[in-house]
Amino acid sequence: MGRFTTLIVGAAVGALLAVVGVAAAMAALNPSASKVATQMADEAKANGQGGRAAEDPLDPPNFYGAR
């Protein structure tokens, strides 16, 4: 009985960790939404569609951080 319980619990815990782990690994390997948004903003700036702050060469570069 004890072994059977351990087996069931082990299978449940293993399945939970597998689901969470696979989802986390996929998210880590795929570009995140924020990364895509940052890339799109960078491309827009490169095409001259950026904000006013991006046009002044004496302003700090835009790589420090993106929300």
Partner: peptide, 11 residues
């Protein structure tokens, strides 16, 4: 900062 967030956090 989105650039300091591990990718898995967006899962």
């Amino acid at each position: 900062n989105a650039a300091a967030v591990p990718g898995s956090r967006s899962g």
